[in-house]
Amino acid sequence: MDFKEILKELKGELLTLFEEKWGDLKGESKKDVEQFLKDSKDKLERWTKLLISKDITLDDYKWLIKSQKDLLLMKALHKAGVSKISLGHFKNKVVNTILNVVTEFIL
C-alpha cells in the first residue's frame, strides 16, 4: 500500500470539497487542509493500515478520523487559551510599569 498516494488523493479530494463549498476561502481552506493532514499524517497512516488489514471496521475508521478533527479543535482552543494567558501577563506588566511611572511623577 502506498500511503503517500492515498494522502495525496485525500488532499486533492478535500481541497475540491472545500472549493465547491467555500470557493471564496480557497487560500485559507488549502492551509487548513494541509495543516490537518500534516498534524494527522502518522495517525491516518496507522488507521488506514488497520482498516486495510480489517483490524478495525469502516465505522471505527470514520469514528477515529472524526475524533482527530475534534482533537485538533481542542488543540486550537488550548493554543488560544495559552496565548490569552500570555497576553494577560503582558497586560499586567504594562499596568505595573504605567503605575510606577505615574507614581514617580506624583511623588
Binding site: R46, L50, D55, I56, W63, L64, S67
Partner: peptide, 9 residues
Amino acid sequence: LSQLFVTEA
C-alpha cells in the same frame, strides 16, 4: 468494541 479500536480511541 475491538481492542485495537479501543486503544486508538
